[in-house]
Design a protein around this nucleic acid. Sequence first.
DNA 1: TTAGGGTTCG
Length: 614
Amino acid sequence: KPRSCSVKCHNILQTSTVPKTTKYTYCRLDELKPQAVVNVYGVVLFFKQPYKTLGSDYCTFLKITDQSNSTISCNIFLPKLEDHPKIFKAGDIIRMHRVKVTPFNDSFNLVKSHGFSAVTFDGTEGEPVEPRTSNQNYHFEADDQRVVEELRAWSAQRVQLPAPASMTLSTVQPRAYFDLTCQLLAKAPVDSTCTMLRVWDGTRCPHTLLKVLVEPEATVGPTSFSPERERIIANVLIYDNHVEAAGQLQPGDFLRIYNLRAIQGSSRVPGPTGSQPAELDHLAFHLHGGTAYGRGIRVLPENSADVQELKRAIAAFMQEEEDAAMLDVWGTPPESMGEPITERTCRHDTNPVTLSEVQGSDHGQIHHVRVRVKSYQPQRLHQSLKLFCDKCSTMQDVPDEDQVSAVFAEACQDSEPCPAPVWALYGAVPLPSESEFPFLTYSFTSVMMSFLGAGLEQVTKLSSSYLNIVPVRSSGGQLAPLDLSAPVLFRGRRRFYGCKKCSNPAVREPNVEGVEVVSEKLVAEALGVELLRYGLLLRLELQDSSGSLDVLLWRDSELFFNVCAADAATNQESQNHIHHTMESLCPPEGSTARRPWLDVCLVSYEWHGLYTSW
DNA sequence: TTAGGGTTCG
């Protein structure tokens, strides 16, 4: 049966303000008729990222299927890369409007026709249905949501997708073809048919990685990194038709490189003089020429789940590195570090511009400016601390002590004794000040404990002695987590909160098979909670001779202040550090002319779900 | 119009 979606169309030629409703009809893939121009929905089985054709366009090739079990291939020719469908992996769902049915090889082929548009979605059941498109005028309504969910459910049951080819640098084996999700740090031309991309994914490859000599002056981004960092940076050699795509990439971009080849052994690298020493048994990465097996490169958006995971891995590595460096330099753990860092270097090779030039330029670009801070918000700096959900991209304030206390007080009142689940044990612990306190512990290990009916003050006291504390209450004769306005986990002085929108909290037995350390992630998974991340958000009013510009300091705010946002929630020293930094950049008294100049790297990007209360 | 999946020169 044809599927249909209701769509509102505003007809700009009519003066009427009443939206006209049109029905879009979607054609099943077994009902295609030659020469017809149709709209279709499908699950992507195979795809090639856009590649240059001998004509003037880029071509995206893909094969799709739907509940009719037909498989149809499509060719989408479009001159602009950004207009091509944003397909990240097999299993993604695509909606195409106005494709022409043409006979090909005993079947049909769909070719993009005039008025074509495409929208793609993640194909995973349970993920939010977020349309991916560069077209601002796409229509998307409740019926589309339903069609996507139906296709997801059908696909999960019936579609045999190719095994995911994604691997990390820590798991890749010699000879493998694989997809690498990584961040670009630097790039350099090797010769006319080869470009080197220097990338990392936060994981350490057990094999020695190939070194490539390049001309330093031709390098975009830093020409070298610390020895520790060099050890986890992979040099990827990009050949032939992919060199052009590599030319579009900027250091800092998050990438997926499809069908990358890992080759171990004596690697001879093309180079300016052919003087590269052949390195024995080093692991080299090649993106060979051609488009077979979907070979290609794509920039992934900042908000995609894979990028969030990548960023966590990179952040964990950087934290490890920083801790080690602090121990090295100061002989003390990083918590006691107080030395201000006045310079951070970005990886872009861009000439400085004025703020008015920034305002006149297209979005998505990187700019270097020389500015002073005219003002900033929030003036009460503790309000800059936010909790952020990577999954739904919403932001909230950190609940204050009174709010959390109230949740605990309410839970204390309501809680009645209830039987422990079979996998848990009851017991009692002595409290520092009071006699003893009833507790519940997961039977697998004593590190995770849940206290029933405890007040906030008591849990805070106990958190100095016990590693993981999950506050629980009883509800209807069963154990239940507290309202998510309270922390789901206390870990020393740190408190972890869950996202109300993305969590489905319940007290469940964690899966600890083979687990050595109970991480906050494991606790959160057991509780069905999507953890919120701490971040610092400030609005800075920047000024130069050409004018002023409001910018948000968010993504790199930890780097900017040289503090960890989660620490700033509990650590007075971190809070003072932020305060002193802002005071030196923007003193409450005195003229703007006395304020220090800053060299700042600005980037504009789309950000949905921004919320601030200041 | 181009391309129309199926591994490499390195």
